[in-house]
Design a protein around this nucleic acid. Structure first.
Length: 509
RNA sequence: GGUCCGUUCGGCUAGUCAGGUUAGGCCCCCAGGUUUUCAUCCUGGUAACACGGGUUCGAAUCCCGUACGGACUACCA
């Protein structure tokens, strides 16, 4: 299916690292565009100069690169609707604000932030809430109340002012949301939002609507936190006489325990990342962990995120980005917030890890092996990985599962010794050593058959021998098939480990 | 406080639009089995329609109300 009229955008502010909720919003936009043969646009909304954080924009771009989410137009790639950064579009916003002034749908307001702050706190002390609405605007300093001369004087005086939207007094605003359906609100409860700030920059509301219109955005898919400003946006489209896009407000990502929006604090508190990539705050130097650095595969991360709020309607859970793009529909996005579950996230990573090529996993693991001061041949490492990968969720877990392939035991698990090292073990394992010594083809299959035959002939009992044997080779009672282990470490090493173990543990009295 | 949105097992959710299911799946947890060990794996289990009314032969599903939760309520986005 192809529809060149479908155009969606993700429009972050470069105020810090991208939260996983934002990544999911972008992902759903991307999937919607791909599914419908539309275009996906990255626009940077940097109208608040005070909150600009260096490096944030680059972080956002790098995050999507890691995820495999690509844009058709936007910052760094360009396109026919640029520029794609609002600070570079600054000049045009004033024109649109003026159009609204001229049509009487917006007005100048000269109240300073301090004045309004004072009114707010006065109201608050009376347990009331101040709203700059159709009622209050009648007694405030704005071009609705001041006469023309006063306004001109103030403007010529270069008194700071903002441009506010003149909210209709009593009007039922009917909106449609692709996820929630029909939503109604009375304009009487809404306030006269600032469209244009005294610093010469537009606010989100104005810039967003103007840009979405100019960039011919067909569907606005964004977080639920924007739902309260939907009436304003709808009214703005009407005020300009523009055709409205479709809207979809995505449910929020919630913290794993309790209620509320997932925040950076929850990640710190519960020990999981809330950002795709690691982020170092340029001011404080604080480091926040990222899914990438924690060892998540990008595919697993994206898959997990996609399933938080969307499902295919059947029982499948594992999807590549391409498959998601094939299956995704807005209709199947849920209405209610989803709690992020770190355990399920780890499970997703496990699913991706076990499908991963052993050679690739070995390459990823190699630095960790080296960090532990072990020199492992690649071929050996690949084999070891293949034997243990079922037990790991993350590449970094692999080391703890296969270190004994490359390191002799430095100690022998006390509980295991107590339980599995019998009075007879010393002599039996000494005997086993001679048996193993005599084997010329030291393959897993061959040693297994020889050793089993020996155990049967001597009537020693599998459990007794094998547990004690494992204890000497591994140091504890864990790990894959023991004959696979000894094949990999080789005959010589196996015999030496038996010697060492016999010597260290000794005879049980 | 006000406005809006939401509510199915501990978590993610299917089922709701077109009313009739032993309310299903996955994660977590628990038990059993397989195995020389641990893990994997297999089998099984605990566990939910927020509450109250109404409509109906019949309600998770439709309607109303209540409760609870969340978001928003900046010259932030």
């Amino acid at each position: 299916m192809s529809n060149s009229n479908i155009r969606v955008r993700f429009a972050p502010s470069p105020t810090g690292p991208l939260h996983i909720g934002g990544v999911r919003t972008a992902l759903y936009n991307y999937l919607f565009a791909k599914k419908n043969g539309g275009k996906f646009i990255l626009r940077i909304e940097d109208t608040d100069q005070n909150r600009f954080v260096p490096g944030a924009e680059q972080y956002i771009i790098e995050s999507f690169e890691w995820c495999g989410i690509t844009f058709d137009e936007g910052v760094t790639i360009g396109g026919d609707y640029g520029p794609y950064k609002q600070s570079e579009r600054k000049a045009m916003y004033r024109t649109y604000a003026n159009m609204l002034i001229e049509s009487g749908q917006a007005y100048y307001a000269f109240d300073t932030a301090e004045e309004l702050g004072k009114i707010r706190s006065d109201y608050e002390s009376q347990k009331k809430t101040f709203v700059y609405n159709s009622d209050e605007r009648k007694r405030l300093r704005n071009s609705l109340n001041l006469n023309e001369d006063e306004v001109t004087a103030l403007m010529e005086n270069s008194s700071p002012y903002v441009i506010r939207f003149k909210m209709p007094e009593k009007e039922i605003i009917v909106m449609n949301d692709m996820i929630r359906g029909r939503v109604e609100v009375n304009s009487s409860v809404l306030d006269d939002k600032i469209l244009f700030k005294s610093d010469g920059m537009p606010t989100y509301h104005l810039a967003n609507i103007v840009d979405d219109h100019l960039m011919e955005i067909s569907h606005v898919i964004r977080g639920e936190e924007w739902l309260p400003s939907l009436p304003l946006h709808v009214l703005l489209y009407d005020a300009f006489g523009w055709e409205k896009p479709e809207f979809a407000h995505l449910p929020l990502l919630l913290k794993p325990d309790g209620n509320g929006k997932l925040s950076k604090r929850d990640g710190d508190r519960l020990g999981f990342p809330v950002f795709p990539l690691e982020w170092t705050d340029p001011k404080s130097g604080n480091i926040s962990s990222g899914f990438r650095e924690e060892g998540y595969f990008a595919g697993a991360f994206v898959n997990m995120l996609a399933m938080l709020g969307w499902n295919p309607g059947d029982e499948r859970e594992i999807f590549s980005l391409e498959e998601l793009a094939e299956e995704f529909t807005i209709e199947r996005v849920g209405k209610s917030g989803a709690k992020f579950d770190p355990a399920k996230a780890a499970w997703y990573n496990h699913q991706y890890l076990i499908k991963q090529d052993d050679g690739l996993l070995a390459k990823m693991l190699a630095p960790i092996v080296a960090e532990n001061g072990v020199l492992a041949e690649e071929e050996q490492l690949v084999k070891a990985v293949s034997l243990v990968k079922e037990r790991a969720n993350f590449v970094k877990d692999l080391w703890g599962q296969l270190d004994f392939f490359f390191k002799r035991p430095v100690e022998y698990d006390a509980k295991a010794v107590k339980k599995r090292w019998k009075v007879s073990s010393y002599d039996q394992l000494t005997e086993l050593k001679y048996v193993l010594e005599g084997i010329s083809e030291f393959s897993s299959e061959n040693t297994e058959s020889v050793v089993k035959k020996w155990i049967e002939e001597k009537e020693y009992g599998m459990g007794v021998i094998m547990n004690a044997f494992r204890l000497l080779v591994v140091g504890e009672l864990k790990g894959p098939h023991l004959f696979d282990i000894i094949e990999l470490i080789g005959q010589e090493e196996t015999l030496e480990r038996i010697d060492q173990g016999l010597h260290e543990i000794g005879r049980k009295e």
